[in-house]
Amino acid sequence: MSSSISTLPFDETALVTQAKAGDAVAFSDLVSHYERRVFRMAKQITQNEEDAEDVLQETFLKAYSHLDDFQGNSKFYTWLVRIAVNEALMKLRKRRSDKTVPLDEPIETGEDTVAREIAVWEDDPEQLYSRDELSEILNEAVQSLKPAYRTVFILRDIEELSIEETAQALNLSISAVKSRLLRARLQLREKLTRQFRRKGDDAFAYL
């Protein structure tokens, strides 16, 4: 699709207007611009390359079919994420229906919201790893979260939807999103602390 990428600055609103008017190149530009992020999100949620590819295709095909339904009340990308997350969750449910925790599991009480790993980090831990190594560390950390927490974290903190948009996309209450997000953030902090803690520090120096 590289032949269709416009050299003009990316203008989402203009491209969506053109695509709605039937401009195939404008729609292709939207696909080119967002395919990486949609694919990443699909992989992170489904944890499966094959499912992620299906999600990627279905997302853009559905977006194209339903372009007329997009009224511009949100950003186009937010609308796209909602389609993608629904597709990804369907895949996940299908694969996991009989063996793991459902996505709508009751949230836990506040008792598990504690910080166990207390250690300062290296100044710039990101600089200690290659891009691929860092990417692997972060992906592994995200994959280790329960699906219910992982999905909220991906939408809010990686795709940068608002709390309200995340709640809407996942059909959750605001308080459920906030509660899951806090657990996800604290669990990831713990995992990254094991990786990024300043070497030589006494683990109990702050206790």
Binding site: A119, L134, L186, F196
Partner: peptide, 13 residues
């Protein structure tokens, strides 16, 4: 420490 490292967790992601 928790505040600083959680903030940096979000930044790195």
């Amino acid at each position: 420490v928790v505040c600083d490292t959680t903030r940096r967790t979000l930044k790195v992601f």
